[in-house]
Amino acid sequence: MTGQASSGESEPLIRLTDVTRSYVMGGVTNTVLAGVTLDVAAGEFAAIMGPSGSGKSTLLHILGLLDRPSSGSYRLRGRETGELSDDALSHLRNQAIGFVFQSFYLIPYATALDNVLLPGLYSDAPRAALVRRAGELLDKVGLTSQARHKPSQLSGGQQQRVALARSLINDPDLILADEPTGQLDSATSREIMELLAAINRDAGKTVIVVTHDPDTAAYARRQILVTDGRVARS
């Protein structure tokens, strides 16, 4: 990720500075993130860990541009995201970030191939190139023969592999995985984490995994511990 912006050489892919997030509910202010400062360099494989309610999910939503900080600064690729419009954030999510979720979130009525293509729909890329790339990605996750299958015809592990292929279709810099092994048995979990590790190692993608499972976190080279809305150790 060199030569991104003028400050690209010196600035990491992700820079959070004193980020807070609080919700007001019935007049009571509930602070979920109480000042997070965190850098993640391009090419890192990091795990965000912490007990439930620690704020790790909220942190992931902010990193994924699905949520905005209440205060503080989030710079992605050297660019301040707080100034961007909703549509610009959508575009940035589409181009720069790939998502993997605990419950896979495949569209039930679309085939595996169409699910992989989904983020491509909202991009500029021509369809022929997208379909070619989707085929390659399905091959990479070992599902070429299941390309025409609906999610209901796939096992949990296969569905998560489709989701992994989907996260890569627009060739983003950053993969965000929210409990990617939360609904899988340990053997399948290992397959998925091996794939994520390969994506990090071979394709050079920055991978951030949110998990409370130490076995899953062990695949990452860096562990970030979040407790009570703060980074306790990184």
Binding site: S90, F99, I107, P119, Y122, S123
Partner: peptide, 16 residues
């Protein structure tokens, strides 16, 4: 809801 949330997460704007 999930489909809509997913589409927005992967880059669909509200307009789309």
């Amino acid at each position: 809801r999930v489909e809509i949330g997913l589409r927005k997460a992967v880059g669909a704007t509200s307009g789309a």
